[in-house]
Structures are given as C-alpha cells and as structure tokens.
Amino acid sequence: MNPLAVIGRIFLDFLVSVGRVSVFTFNGVRHVFAPPIYLRLTGRQMMVIGYYSLPVVGLTALFTGMVLALQIYLGSSRFNAENAVAWIVVLGITRELGPVLGGLMVAGRVASAMAAEIGTMRVTEQIDALTTLSTNPFKYLVAPRMIAGVVTLPVLILVADIIGVMGGYLVGTHKLGFNAGTYLKNTFDFLETLDVVSGLVKASVFGFIIALMGCYHGFHSKGGAQGVGRATTDAVVSASIMILIANYFVTELFFSGQ
C-alpha cells in the first residue's frame, strides 16, 4: 500500500476521533448544566472517585514525598543546600507530583472502571434500554461522572498533598536529621497560595479528563467482551496521555508570567 495513503488514513482517523470526542464533550457538558441533576448518582461517583481512591493515591503521595526528600537531600548536599529539602518537597508535591501522580493513579483505577461499566452497558443494550425508558444516557451516565470528577479530584489531591508533605517530613526529621520545627517552618515559609491552587486546578482538569475518557470509550465500545476490554485499555491510555499534555498547558497558564 502507498505509504502516503497510510499516513493520510491515520490522519483522517485521528480527525474523526477528535470530532467524536468534541461532540461527546459538548453533549456531556450540556447535560451537566441542564436539569435534572441526579444527585444520588453523583454522590455515588464521588465516593468511587474520591473515597475509594484515597488508599492508593495516599500511598503514592506518601512514598513520593519520602523519595523526593531523600533525592533532594542527596542532590542538594553536593553544594551545601540541604535546607532546600523542605520547600522543594512541598513545591514539588503541591505543584506537580501530587496532582499528576494522583491523576494518573485515579486514571488507572477509575477511567478503566467507568469504561468497563459503561462499555458493558453498551454491549448488553442497557444504554438503549435507558433511552427507551425516557432517560437520556448522557444525563444519567455521563453528567454525574463529570461533576464527580471535577469536584472530587481536587479534594482527593489536597489530601494527597498533605500526605506527600508528611512523607517528606518523616524522612527529613527521622532519617536526615532535620529539626522538626525548622523543617515545618521552611515548608510553610516558602509555600504560596498559588502553588496549592494551581495543583488543585490541575486536579480538577484531570478529573474532567478521566471522567470524559472513561465515559467516551465505554460509550463507543462494541464487539462484546473483547470490545469492552479494548475500551478499558483505551480509556486508561488516552486519559493518562491527556493528563500529561494538559499538565503542561495548565502549568504554562499559571506560571508563564513569573
């Protein structure tokens, strides 16, 4: 086959996917703002995204904070800047590692579950059944997940930030020999509101991406169990890549003028 034709076909398929995701996003967001809002379902999704993800995100944050403290100590000791450990840990966690690693962990846990659940509903005609029962599937399935993702992930990441900083504190005070009071003073003296807010805004964006990709791939799954499996994989991969891309642009937005 002509290589140019192959490239053209891939490009066209990409454009079709972008168009489909755009239309899906528009429909999903439209139903977020149009009543009725299913509060019970939204609450259930908040539990799934937030509460049930807390152990895995908390552990990730804890060990990331601990490793970060060790690595920064080893690096900064080469030029006698060990005091930088506390504030580099807190900035690293709140600005980047908390939201990004937390987002990726939630993408792995939640986007896959959403895609599997909605994908199974698609291939077993449950989504068609919703329509015949006068219930819009976007309003019933997509909108609650989008709301839950946008609202819950910042709360989850705030908790993860605190756990991550605590991880750094534990290593700093118990292993590296920092004074506890000094470590905490260094942590809070250099921390600005924008550092935390930018991380929480990122978390909110990532929450939206996770819900969008989970729902989108579930909605478009076909071909039985194999199709649902593929949708699950695609949801995690696409959500993870989009999180990393969105992370750059949100960072650029917040810190480009500084």
Binding site: T124, E125, Q126, A129
Partner: peptide, 27 residues
Amino acid sequence: FGMLFQGSALFDSLKVWENVAFGLIQG
C-alpha cells in the same frame, strides 16, 4: 413505548424492583 430486549438489558447496579420502576421514577 415499552421495550423487551433480547438479552433483557436489566441494569446490574439496581435491584429488580428498581429496574421495573425505573421508567416511572426517572422518566
């Protein structure tokens, strides 16, 4: 309309009575 699907298409996440009442509650 009412519709009986080939594979029943019952909602797994709901109890049987909630499935039957779904159109009345949501619709």
